[in-house]
Design a binder for these strands. Structure first.
Ligand SMILES: [Zn+2]
Length: 286
DNA sequence: CGTCTTTGACCCGCGC
DNA sequence: GCGCGGGTCAAAGACG
């Protein structure tokens, strides 16, 4: 009974230029359009979320579980990290114009599940049960019809020199493979928590070596381990964000349900993600 | 000695 | 069937 099964996911479609184009489905409404809510602050060298974003991020009072927020502009900008660009986008994976939400799950072969954004009512929890037993790999991979991954996934790009970005959890690397058409390998990590099957993979962008693409799959069924030695306030401090920017980006995005498009500055190829709202982590912050 | 990384083997779905 | 590519396993190492 993993509680982590409530979101479904999607499709990571691939094309020749990008190999990540994930949509994460969670029963939420279409995003609000508040382009001005988050302004890039050039004066803040560490992290460029506006104060309004940060304050609301850590003040749940005005955040219901169904709210969604759109982020425009750069999210993070610092000397060594930068979410390249985000814009409110529309549904179609191929057509960023129309603002709408999860409708575009698109394409997926696996997509039995999804009734798109509106009919969220019938979440089919059964979807991803297989994960329970991590060990016995053999044939038990039944769940036939459901076959492969149903785990919620999302990815985002960060500009960073280091591959190993801090995100508050402990990971065990279980594989590394060469990426086609890329000089950089992709690393596979699994959460070290016993019953948690969350995975992530990290790779450097095909052509822009300064960009790291991190893809998370699944939801943690536990709190962040070290929940970082510190308080929320500490986490927001510049010195903290400098070291854990990735962590912050991860949670801030998790915090709000977002639909955003990341555009690689050099290639202009969008990366579209839809991220779910989740405040679970906050209980561990204090 | 526990924990995490390395790395080739293996598995599996898919297209030819 | 075969090969390829993505994903995972697990034995052996590295490390503290
Ligand atoms: Zn976990």
């Amino acid at each position: 009974m993993l509680s982590s099964d409530q979101g479904f996911a999607f499709p990571i479609t691939t094309d020749q230029n990008y190999n990540i184009n994930p949509f994460v489905y969670n029963n939420y409404q279409p995003p609000l359009q508040n382009p001005n809510q988050f302004d890039h602050d050039p004066n803040n060298s560490h992290i460029s979320f506006s104060n309004s974003l940060l304050s609301s991020a850590f003040d749940m009072s005005n955040c219901s579980t169904s709210s969604e927020v759109a982020i425009c502009n750069n999210i993070i900008s610092s000397s060594n990290i930068e979410v390249v660009k985000e814009k409110l986008i529309g549904g179609g994976e191929n057509n960023p114009e129309t603002p709408n939400s999860t409708a575009s799950f698109s394409s997926q072969e696996g997509g039995v599940e999804e009734d798109s954004s509106k009919s969220k009512k019938d979440l089919k929890l059964k979807a991803c049960e297989e994960g329970s037993d991590g060990r016995s790999k053999n044939v038990k991979a039944k769940t036939k019809e459901e076959k492969k991954q149903r785990e919620q996934r999302f990815a985002f790009m960060t500009k960073s020199e280091v591959d190993n970005l801090e995100d508050g959890y402990r990971w065990r690397k279980y594989g590394q493979k060469a990426v086609k058409n890329s000089p950089f390998p992709r690393s596979y990590y699994r959460c070290t928590s016993q019953k948690c099957s969350v995975k992530k993979r990290i790779e450097r962008s095909y052509q822009d070596p300064s960009v790291v693409i991190t893809t998370y799959e699944g939801q943690h069924n536990h709190h962040s381990p070290a929940t970082i030695r510190g308080s929320a306030a500490a986490m927001l401090a510049p010195s903290y964000s400098r070291r854990h920017h990735h962590f912050l980006a991860y949670y801030l995005k998790k915090c709000f349900s977002l639909q955003l498009m990341l555009i690689n500055k050099t290639t202009q190829i969008p990366l579209i993600t839809h991220i779910s709202l989740n405040f679970d982590w906050m209980t561990t912050v204090y």
